[in-house]
């Protein structure tokens, strides 16, 4: 996140609308997941990244109200939660479209034509990086190397890496895209239960 000062978090100095308007109440199932996750670490606060992923997977983005709910569930000061949320680019502090389209802009993708993909997103869908289409279906982000450079130019569409891409291929993938797998589901497994049982 580059802001005017050119470093992480600077964008948050700008007064942008971050409140969703309604308090966030985390469902019992989510709170139970959070407790299980906390038990996996010697210091329960270490669960903050997976917990924020889970909350974002459920709400679509992390509003200030969501941060408050997480702070409560994690027994952490709100400021510490806020600090984490604003440091990491995968946590979105604005509402997002249902489908994520993250196009890589780093060296190997640039060398093999990433700009053509950004131009196509602008011309066909009317979105620049950071913007959501008017119908709320997709949000485009320009991201740094996703480490799939062998498929350059590439993008992560919903949960999946795709490449090499052409504008036509991009259209096809966007048309078919479904939200898909989430981070929190991917890291939920039996070892959590095994560790919890030990305690």
């Amino acid at each position: 996140m580059s802001g005017p000062d050119g470093h992480r978090g600077a964008a948050n100095l700008v007064p942008v609308e971050r409140e969703s308007g309604a308090p966030v109440v985390l469902p019992a199932e989510t709170l139970a997941w959070i407790e299980q996750r906390r038990a996996m670490y010697e210091d329960p606060r270490a669960a903050i990244l997976p917990v924020l992923h889970r909350v974002q997977d459920e709400l679509g983005w992390i509003s200030l109200e969501a941060e408050e709910a997480v702070a409560q569930a994690m027994r952490m000061p709100l400021a510490k939660v806020h600090e984490v949320v604003t440091f990491y680019t995968l946590f979105k502090t604005q509402p997002q479209g249902r489908i994520r389209v993250d196009i890589c802009q780093t060296m190997s993708c640039m060398l093999r034509g990433a700009r053509e993909l950004f131009a196509h997103m602008r011309d066909r869908y009317g979105v620049h990086p950071g913007e959501t289409t008017a119908d709320g279906r997709l949000t485009l982000h320009a991201v740094e190397c996703l480490c799939n450079c062998e498929c350059a130019p590439m993008a992560q569409i919903a949960d999946t890496y795709h490449g090499p891409l052409t504008p036509a291929k991009l259209d096809e993938l966007i048309a078919q895209a479904q939200p898909g797998e989430t981070v929190s589901a991917a890291v939920t497994g039996t070892c959590a239960a095994a560790i919890a049982e030990k305690r």
């Binding site: 007064p15 604005q94 950004f118 982000h141």
Partner: peptide, 19 residues
Amino acid sequence: AAPPLVQIAGVAGTMGAHV
């Protein structure tokens, strides 16, 4: 040059590349 605030707000959350 530091762009006006609204313009920054428009790209907040992007990785900086902007058309």
